[in-house]
């Protein structure tokens, strides 16, 4: 087992060209359009939920796909952000954008603390350590006075976004979510294609070599961890506003597992995979909303099937087959 067999994306991804970046951006624009259409044709809250989880999954993918660090505790940032943002908006009457920024900042701090310890270990150790940290935060959330315990932090008010969009209106709430979603995508996109992102990929492919080239790899990994945590926190805060609720589920290991699943299904290490994965998983859950107990089983089955037969995910497989066709 060599490090290059790790959660690396398809080989084609490495040879990504300028043209392919444009294709990615074009496809993303199509996705945005599709989301807008979907919000008119179906329950817009489902679409908003997809966007919130897509942001979360994109944030995790920065770590899991593009740096090779597997976090199994990312719900701590998402849920932490949901509580923080929700509380600031509800208790202090902060505007929406301030709540989201606070959530991102708190999640970043949390990510710094966790990341310092997590990046020192590798692979499955990191997964276990992050899982344990998230569980600790869950227990703290159960006890903390402001989280509302089992009931969660309820009726988080919807106010103005940037003083322009009144999120009490369903459509403007949708637009707000969409703006944040596009912003998160562009941040991840920009990061991945920056020199910093190239270094992260080099670390993913072969950390020992990156070290021998003089990189302080742990600093890079930590930076990626903190950025990923901050974006997850922002996603959590947005989710709290959309659903007017931050709850223990947001911090639970189920949520951590779900976001890993979204990446796995969509395609680890691809730009569009997390979005596809979030849409698929949320879509299935909505479709099965009458029989909620089965969601656990279905999620489990998807995990098993994807891990055994389909490790590159939907988008990864698509890129792979395109690359094969071009190669011919």
């Amino acid at each position: 087992m060599t490090s290059s067999t790790s959660l690396s994306a398809s080989r084609g991804e490495r040879r990504i060209t300028r043209r392919r970046r444009l294709v990615e951006l074009g496809l993303f624009a199509a996705i945005v359009l599709a989301l807008m259409l979907a919000s008119q044709m179906m329950n817009p809250f489902v679409v908003m939920k997809i966007m919130c989880f897509a942001m979360f999954a994109l944030a995790l993918n920065l770590l899991m796909g593009f740096t090779g660090i597997v976090s199994f505790g990312h719900a701590m940032f998402f849920g932490g952000g949901a509580y923080m943002g929700g509380y600031a908006i509800k208790a202090f009457g902060w505007p929406l954008e301030a709540g989201i920024l606070l959530a991102a900042a708190v999640a970043a701090l949390l990510g710094l603390g966790t990341g310092v310890l997590a990046v020192r270990r590798h692979g499955i150790y990191t997964a276990m350590v992050t899982l344990a940290f998230a569980q600790m935060l869950l227990f703290l959330a159960i006890q903390a006075p402001f989280t509302g315990g089992e009931d969660g932090l309820q009726s988080i008010p919807r106010g103005y976004f940037l003083g322009l969009l009144d999120t009490r209106s369903e459509f403007q709430l949708f637009l707000t979510t969409l703006i944040l979603f596009v912003a998160v995508f562009l941040i991840v996109f920009r990061t991945v294609h920056s020199p910093f992102g190239q270094t992260l990929k080099a670390i993913r492919e072969n950390e020992a070599r990156a070290i021998s080239l003089g990189y302080h790899t742990n600093r890079y990994k930590l930076a990626a961890f903190v950025l990923s945590a901050a974006l997850s926190g922002a996603a959590g805060a947005m989710k709290a506003v959309v659903f007017e609720l931050a709850s223990l589920t947001d911090v639970s290991w189920h949520t951590s597992g779900e976001v890993v699943l979204m990446n796995l299904v969509g395609g680890i290490g691809t730009m569009l995979g997390p979005i596809a994965g979030a849409a698929i998983i949320i879509g299935i859950q909505e479709f099965l909303s009458g029989i909620e107990d089965w969601i656990l089983v279905i999620n489990g089955v998807i995990f098993v099937v994807v891990v055994i037969a389909f490790r590159r995910g939907v988008v990864g497989e698509a890129i792979g087959s395109l690359a094969r066709r071009e190669g011919r």
């Binding site: 087992m1 959660l7 199994f72 997964a127 796995l264 995990f303 098993v304 891990v307 055994i308 490790r311």
Partner: peptide, 11 residues
């Protein structure tokens, strides 16, 4: 990669 074993058993 060993992480896949973790993911499978998680499922």
């Amino acid at each position: 990669d060993q992480i896949y074993g973790l993911l499978l058993t998680f499922g």
